[in-house]
Amino acid sequence: MTLHRLLLLSAVNFCLGMYGMVVRRNVICVLMAMELMFNAVIINFIAFAHYGNGHATEGSIFPIFIIAVTACEMAAALAIILTMYRKMHKLDVHRLDSLNG
């Protein structure tokens, strides 16, 4: 277990998340792919906290903030998904065009 291997593991995880975000059409699947990317970021933080010089505690605190903010974001996302389902009865991201984006 070296820093290089850990970073490669998190890069693989991140790229899988990226693939899922591009390929999937369901909103919930896109959100899950995003979770994978967040997880890759957290693995990076922990890896650098372990192998860096000192400040390992701070390095393991920042992922806790990431996890808390992700929980907030999922609460808002669940509300948006419910509203979207009530409006269009389908969770296809291609139909989210009412803002003309």
Binding site: L6, I46, H50, P63, I67, A71
Partner: peptide, 16 residues
Amino acid sequence: ILLNAEMTALAQVAVY
């Protein structure tokens, strides 16, 4: 846990 970040692992299991 393998990387000695015990609290983060707990937060991961509990919150995530």
